[in-house]
Design a protein around this nucleic acid. Structure first.
Lengths: 161, 161
DNA sequence: TAAGATTGACTGTTCAATCTTA
DNA sequence: TAAGATTGAACAGTCAATCTTA
């Protein structure tokens, strides 16, 4: 590969990165504003509820939830503080390891997620389907999936609470 | 299109969106930590310097810089407060419209950007080229570029300062 | 020693209000 | 009236320190 090609490749990586920054910023700004206005949830609140709703027993170890959301341990404590105060999430204990605390989606949390999903999913679809065909969506998803993911399996532990 | 296909398309859009969230979070976390540790600049500091360095006269109206970075007016004031305190950016006045303030890259700011770019660009290349071929980088860039961009032309005004 | 969770102090950012100029 | 910039109050998240349990 020539020096010229190397330079092009370098600026290509930088261009991809800045597009990722801008694309994330614009999409997050738009989707978050609507979600907060209509349902009082931030995008991260919503993602936390969604992760929990898809997990077994609708619960996850707090440390695993942090990893999935790319938050620090303290970040997840503070995010969950808000969701617990609203009654959407509860704490659960782990009978095998007293260090572990679970985040458990409540019935109210599940209802809130369903309620918010109607308009939030519509907003996501509008934003993405307006710009991408079905095959392009698949390509975009595939490419983005190659960026670093959560490491390691989630800690197992018998049903909490 | 069948209901099933519609559902698939819907979840495809949602999947693309969550991958964008995760991909951004993981890449930003890694690149930001390194940039802060090595050069004392956040990713947004760096992007502000880079935008200014590429602008005509190495200067932009603050309001245009805000739009490019997807920050609010107050967000950009505070970001620039830090860069001004460090001597990397200066204020410039607009002789035709006294409401407008420019952000002007200083020589020190230009040197700082060049200095930080060496390792930062290398880190970006490492992260992206490890995962994507040249054509995949181009495809990713193209797809991300379709998400909402900055609106309107940047305000012109004779050279500031 | 280390893992998980929380807390206090701090940073970065937003929103609402204000000021100046157009 | 509106555009651009700044400021005070508030919020979301980080980091470093601490506590409990393994």
């Amino acid at each position: 590969m020539s020096t010229q090609a190397l330079t092009e490749q370098a600026s290509q990586a930088v261009t991809a990165w800045t597009r990722l920054l801008r694309g994330h910023a614009s999409a997050t700004r738009a989707l978050n504003a609507k979600l907060v206005a209509e349902h009082g949830l931030t995008v991260n609140d919503y993602e936390a509820l969604r992760q929990l709703s898809q997990a077994e027993d609708r619960s996850m170890r707090r440390v695993d939830l942090a990893a999935h959301l790319f938050l620090t341990a303290s970040g997840v404590t503070r995010l969950l503080n808000g969701l617990e105060a609203a009654g959407f999430v509860e704490k659960g204990v782990c009978r095998e390891d007293a260090r572990v605390t679970y985040a458990v989606l409540t019935e109210a949390g599940h209802r809130k997620l369903a309620e918010a999903s109607a308009s939030h999913v519509a907003a996501i679809r509008e934003l993405f389907e307006e710009r991408f065909s079905t095959s392009e969506l698949a390509a975009l998803t595939d490419l983005l999936s190659r960026l670093p993911r959560v490491a390691g399996a989630d800690g197992a532990c018998p049903p909490p609470e």
